[in-house]
């Protein structure tokens, strides 16, 4: 193996979510980020837990699911490489709304939400850059959810 070691801001830059992110900001984010590794069956988060981190996936698969009494949990969506898991960290009261269960060996970056919130509050330009990236994720999820509700393949 070659001994090339990427710095955290370089790793972040390789992710779709941070594409074309200003280098100064990448360094700020890197200060809140760390590499993570979860095995199948582990949970990134549980419903109603404090949302004090969010995840950028580079490998693996994660299910967002909701527990249903007396039944197996309902999966709302599955997320994979290049996806972001978690937006609840951005909105008070900063609590997870779903369980995030690892389906396939997951590698990625976990970002300390509290750390990032403080930095975004201090530097609104950074905050705006983050919002520009998170809002499309939210609208896409919303749109996909609407289409799920439509039940387009349903029996008529």
């Amino acid at each position: 193996m070659s001994a090339v070691v990427s710095t955290m801001d370089q790793i972040l830059g390789q992710h779709r979510f941070f594409a074309d992110f200003p280098p100064d900001f990448a360094e700020l984010i890197a200060g809140c980020a760390r590499n993570t590794h979860y095995k199948p069956g582990e949970y990134l988060a549980h419903e109603s837990d404090r949302a004090d981190s969010f995840f950028i996936l580079s490998k693996g698969k994660v299910a967002l699911e909701v527990a249903v009494p007396g039944k197996s949990p309902v999966v709302i969506a599955t997320l994979g490489a290049q996806d972001v898991v978690g937006v609840s960290w951005l909105v008070a009261p900063y609590c997870w709304l779903f369980d995030a269960r690892v389906m396939e060996d997951m590698r990625g970056i976990s970002i300390d939400a509290k750390c990032l919130r403080v930095k975004c509050d201090a530097d609104h330009d950074l905050g705006y850059e983050m919002m520009k990236r998170l809002l499309p994720v939210l609208t896409q999820r919303l749109h996909a959810t609407r289409m799920q509700i439509l039940d387009v393949y349903g029996k008529s």
Binding site: A63, K71, P73, A77, D83, Q140, D151
Partner: peptide
Amino acid sequence: DHSAADWRGHVGVVPTLIQR
């Protein structure tokens, strides 16, 4: 579009696959 936890594949509408 809809699944319980025993399904090992993707969950989500087909347009979301296009983005990936």
